[in-house]
């Protein structure tokens, strides 16, 4: 009898092998200029930088092509180093030609007496993508070499998720290559996160994720 029913038990045991779950994590690739320069001082230089995020939101080093629409006003070399030579304004463009598509970003810069870098605050709203409560507005501002994420009074998150973590990510569905801010310990009301060594334009999403079980709870696009 043992022989007869042993296969059933073995099948049940083997069913416990680790398999694969697949995460739909594709996003639209993008190329973006990191610094928001409004005005460059005449006869000075500014180093532009650009970041290419691939189809999973991961930063990737790619060959970039820098151009200035008005070379007599602002010259820019192949490494993104811009030099203002005359008053006026010029559009600085960066492009990356992948085998499938051309990605581009641009910024219009004025040549003036002093350089002005725009320090725009960013903001957005988080929303649940699950059955767990997650809602609220937030702002992000620079603070030295880091940023401060401030949630408004209307913030609320479910306390039924013991492993709820906050991430900064460039992919709204994945924490791969994301910056882990930490475990959530405030579930209602205004609060702040001070995050060091992160640029204000470095990430596009706040992502709430249940880390132990790899379940997304919700996200907010940083606008």
């Amino acid at each position: 009898m043992k022989k007869k029913y042993l296969p059933l038990l073995l099948i049940a045991l083997m069913y416990g092998c680790i398999g694969n779950d697949y995460l739909m994590d594709e996003v639209e690739p993008e190329l973006r200029i990191s610094a928001s320069l409004d005005t460059i001082a005449i006869n000075s230089s500014f180093q532009f930088e650009a970041t290419y995020l691939n189809n999973v939101g991961q930063e990737e080093t790619v060959p970039l092509n820098w151009e200035s629409s008005q070379n007599g006003i602002i010259n820019i070399d192949e490494n993104g180093l811009a030099t203002a030579t005359n008053t006026g304004q010029s559009t600085i463009s960066v492009t990356y030609e992948s085998p499938e598509q051309v990605y581009a970003d641009s910024v219009t810069v004025v040549v003036g007496e002093t350089s002005v870098v725009i320090e725009d605050d960013r903001s957005g709203s988080i929303n649940t993508t699950s059955s767990y409560v997650l809602t609220g507005d937030f702002t992000i501002e620079e603070n030295g070499s880091g940023i401060v994420v401030t949630f408004a009074n209307n913030y609320q998150a479910s306390s039924s998720l013991p492993g709820l973590y906050l991430y900064l990510s460039n992919n709204p569905n994945s924490i791969a290559n994301a910056h882990e801010v930490g475990m959530v310990d405030v579930y209602i009301g205004a609060h702040q996160y001070n995050i060091s060594e992160v640029g204000i334009n470095e990430y596009n999403y706040l992502l709430y994720y249940c880390k132990p079980f790899n379940v997304k709870v919700g996200h907010g696009e940083i606008e």
Partner: peptide, 13 residues
């Protein structure tokens, strides 16, 4: 628990 795989890259996340 199963592996979590990127459906885009096939990488094990």
């Amino acid at each position: 628990m199963n592996n979590l795989i990127s459906s885009t890259t096939g990488e094990t996340l």
